[in-house]
């Protein structure tokens, strides 16, 4: 079981993550619609999440920018980031910022749950 923080601008997708990942036994400890809000919230959490699900395509601050801030606050070292993007060039840059797990839409929510289980094993 992993504790998960979700950063995605789409409420419907957030809800799907919550439902699907909870079914797999994971625990959602927080959600944010953008990177700025997420960093503030994660820093205020008593315990850092095991996994941060980070969508790249977001308004205001995209996934990569959020990732840079996560790195700045040393959150990448404390949590594993699952980066959601279909763009190979972004993938490369995210890799340089310390991301090792990627998933591309569309994906199966069941498989995503299993993938997170593997990540924290």
């Amino acid at each position: 079981m992993a504790t998960i923080y979700i950063i995605d601008d789409e409420e419907t997708i957030q809800f799907l993550y919550k439902e699907g990942l909870t079914l797999e036994g994971h625990k959602i400890i927080g959600t944010a619609h953008n990177g700025s809000k997420a960093i503030e919230e994660i820093n205020n959490l008593k315990k850092y999440p095991d996994v941060i699900i980070l969508d790249h395509r977001m308004p205001i601050k995209n996934g990569l920018d959020t990732l840079k801030e996560l790195k700045e606050y040393k959150l990448i070292a404390k949590s594993k980031v699952l980066f959601i993007t279909a763009d190979p060039t972004v993938k490369e840059e995210a890799g340089k910022l310390g991301v090792t797990s990627f998933i591309q839409k569309p994906f199966s929510i069941i498989k995503l749950g299993k993938m997170i289980t593997e990540m924290v094993r």
Partner: peptide, 11 residues
């Protein structure tokens, strides 16, 4: 949209 609908159907 596909990811969402696919996910809810899976659930």
């Amino acid at each position: 949209a596909n990811t969402s609908v696919h996910g809810y159907l899976e659930l």
